[in-house]
Structure formats: C-alpha cells, structure tokens
Design a protein around this nucleic acid. Structure first.
Lengths: 255, 255
DNA sequence: CGGAATGTTGAACCGTTTCAAACGGAGTGG
DNA sequence: CCACTCCGTTTGAAACGGTTCAACATTCCG
C-alpha cells in the first residue's frame, strides 16, 4: 500500500501517534533539534508499507539498493558470514530505526539485513532521504547523530564479545534490547518480546546455541530473568544490569 | 606550532604533498567527489600540530572535547574497559584518519583514544569542521561516507572476534592494517611498521598476550609473515589473506 | 496428525586462559 | 663498562570455558 503523507501541520507531538513514520521521526528528533518545517519535510517522505514474516531478507550482501527501510514493528538484524560459513549478527534494529542508513552513502552492501520474527517495514527511496538531508541541515545532523549512535553500539558489541564471558555477554544483550526497545509505556526492567531463536542470540553474541541455552537457564535459575515463549521479563533491572556490566551511556539517549 | 593554512589555489593534486592536512583530504576526496572550492575550504581549516609519544590520551571516556584530531603519522586506537578492568580496543586509526569524528555530533565520549607508538597529530576545532560541513554539502557527504566506512570496519571486527579462531583473527587484523595503511609507495603484501605490543594486539582481537605470541609464532613458522621489532613483512599477500579469511570489500576503498 | 524446527541434556573434547618462571633488549646510574 | 631495572617476549603445564556431537523432548505449523 503505497502512499504519500500529507504535509504535516499543527502541533507536532500530538499528531505523531498512529503515523508509521512517527517512530523514526521521534527517534531522530530525540537526537537533534529538528525545526517544525523540517519535521514536516520528514512527514512528506514517500513510502511503501509491508508486513514481512520471519527470515526475510531486506538487503543481501553485494546489493546496491536504491531504497532504505524503516522498521515500524518487530526486530531486524544485520549479519555477515565467514569464509567457512559461520554467521555473526553485527547489529539488531528496533522499531523506529532506519535499518540500512549505511546504504545512504555507500554503494554496495557488505552485509545482509534480515527480519527476526514478523516485521512491519516502510520502504523509502534513498534519493528522497538524501535530498531532504541536503536541503535541511537539521535533518542531516539528526541522521549523522543516528549513524554515530549505531557506531557506538557496534563498539560496545566489540567490547562485549571480545572481553565478557558468556553469561555476562547474554545478559548485556538482553539489557541493551530492553533499553532500546523502550516503548514509552514500558520502562527498562519490564517485559518485552524477543522474537529470536537461541541460535540467533548465539549468532549475535558469538556463542553456540547450546551454550546460550545453558546460560539463559542460569540467568533464569538465579532469578535475573524470566524467559519463556520468546518473552523476556526482567524482575529487577538493577540486578540484571549489574550482572550484565551494562551501562546505557553508550546508547546516547540524551545527546 | 599553530597555524592557519593559506587559501588553497591552483592544481589540487600536485600541491597536496607535504601539507599535513593532505592525508586526510585525500582520504575524504577518495570517498566522495569534492569540488575544488570545497577542497580549498578544507585547506583553510585552522590546526595545531603536535608530536606525541606512545600511550598518550587524546580523548578520555566521559570527556566532551571541542577539538577533533587528525592523525598524520603513527597509529592510534579507541578503547573501552569492562567493569572488571579488561580492556578492548574497538578501533585502530591510521594516518589520514580523523580520529574522533564521533565527537562531531555526540557530546560525551563513551571511549578513550590513545596513541600507539609515536604519533604526529593535528588538533582542529570541532566547530570549524561542523561549519564547513554545514556550508559545503560535498564535505558533509565525504564525512558521512567516512563515518560509514568506520562503522563497516567495526562490523567486520565483530565478525572477526565473534566467529574466527585466534590464528585467523590475528592474520585478519594484520591484513586489514596492511590494506588501510596503504601508503602509495607500498602496495598490500609488503612491509609495514606495527607499533603495538603483543598485549595491545590481544586487546584488539580479544585474546591474551600469551596466545597472541603463540599465534604470531605460528604464522611466522608457516611463512605467512615475518615479524620482528614491530615490523610486519607479508611475503605472499594471497597466502596470508587466504589464511586470514580477508576480503577488503568492507573497507570501501572505492565507493 | 505428522514432520520440521527449536529447545534441552550429558559427556567428551579442545582452544584459549591462567599462572609462573625465564629470557632478552633498552635505558639508567654508578 | 658493568650491574640493575623495566618492559615486553617466550615457554611450559595445568585449569577452565565453551564447543561439539548425539540423543531426546517440545513446540510450531501445515
């Protein structure tokens, strides 16, 4: 169902809810001061909405796509494969993220993007975003900041995988996702849906599925999480984030 | 020795050599088409040049610096520390890199930047770069692309640390540095200086110094590298890059 | 209902770490 | 010039964390 949003007018925050682009725009706006007119420009972005089920590819390594994807609901991941076929997830995207900002200025993709669980995704022409960024400095600024936050998350993943043991590593991932999904109605330390198999969790933290299983059981046994049916409950945020060596500074929620 | 460069005029390529900013500008220019005037703008950046010895900090976690650093010679690294004091290098910068582009739009640093070996570093006011980027879209574009390449390198590091064994991991780092240092006079597969202790190499690839030592000996024994006095010689690029599972695509040398 | 994908468990194995001790080279002071 | 220290490298042996493999249980889905 393709569509072009009507120009945005009136009170900004109150009209946001319900619009598919709202999540992304709120996220961008949180990272940089965007003027009302520039917000309006964002709302004029042409897009196509699609509902995809688990395991679908949005981008494949080697592609030169001319569209970007905005995640409205669900989770997606970027992954790479070693020469002998081992998979590593290098990033996870949450609702509101532009999944392939990389592709805005890099021609060919050096990784694949795939849905985890069912996702609603908007497809936006690359040119439209580039044009907007070129015309409106505050939008460019916000995109800049967003890319830098992604890079900062990648740095933390390197630390996580390089230097923390399996248990801490998994706990850290769970904390990060809790903090990032962060729908207004849930604060960290609550419940969220984790539409990933244990194998995929392993691919994200550089472990085997078997070991992920044992560690999740360990965390459950110690009362740090409740985990069943792809749902994570964090009964005590302080305890889990402590066990995870998690400090959300690197997410740069306030810039 | 502070200074302001005279406005740049005349043939671009021929006047580059010898200028401290040249390395960075060439790198930016390689990643985006920058007009002659915009290049001139880059050459007008005010800077201070400093010679630093090994182990000096350019940025400390928690800082909000108002200057960026451009590396002219030597190597620097960005690193983070876990709660129990383990160190992980999350990025290495080579000559021509802007070491802390992150800080351009993120207020507080979530990592430290430190010199590896002796370095020549230019200090440039953050505002000057931001202003230039705001005024000249082609410069903003080039900076964008540079940040994205850095992010792409970070992704490959996640893959490297998460899924490759010690030997391959180290070989991969050696290949990457060879490909990135890439001074015009040496093509990959030649000789370069690696001003890092084995402990620092371990911090970069998520291993202990002891194991790095054994792996380097292994690579040497198999004739894939010669290594002594912090100098790496790669006698056969094809063989080493094969053993390293290295493919330079992710460096996006051509965009 | 049946088959495939995902989760669970145990035991053996192996790559990497840890610890401890020795070695080598560079720099310093007597 | 030697003795001394410091730092990085080297070596060996033991311990550990995570992997691998294989079998079984469970859930999901057509």
């Amino acid at each position: 169902m393709p569509g072009i949003l009507p120009a945005f007018a009136g009170n900004v925050m109150s009209d946001l809810t319900g619009d598919p682009l709202a999540g992304m725009i709120n996220k961008l706006a949180g990272r940089s001061c965007i003027s009302l007119e520039d917000r309006a420009g964002l709302f004029e972005l042409p897009y196509t909405s699609r509902l995809l089920d688990a395991g679908r590819y949005l981008v494949r390594e080697g592609d030169s796509p001319d569209h970007c994807h905005i995640l409205v609901s669900g989770l997606t991941c970027r992954h790479k494969i070693t020469g002998d076929g081992l998979r590593q997830i290098v990033a996870i995207n949450v609702p509101g993220d532009v999944v392939d900002l990389q592709m805005l200025y890099l021609k060919i993709a050096d990784h694949s993007v795939q849905t985890l669980g069912q996702c609603e995704v908007l497809t936006v022409p690359r040119d439209a975003i580039c044009k907007l960024a070129a015309e409106r400095p505050s939008v460019a600024h916000a995109i800049f900041a967003t890319i830098l936050v992604d890079a900062s998350i990648a740095s933390e993943w390197i630390l996580n995988i390089g230097r923390r043991n399996a248990r801490t590593r998994i706990a850290h991932l769970l904390c990060e996702l809790a903090a990032r999904i962060d729908r207004p109605e849930i604060s960290p330390g609550q419940t969220y849906k984790l539409p990933m198999t244990q194998e995929q969790v392993g691919d994200a933290v550089g472990l085997t599925a078997v070991h992920v299983n044992r560690m999740l059981q360990g965390l459950s046994k110690d009362g740090l999480i409740f985990y069943s049916k792809q749902t994570i409950i964090i009964p005590n945020w302080a305890k889990l984030s402590d066990a995870a060596d998690f400090n959300g500074r690197y997410l740069h929620k306030t810039i």
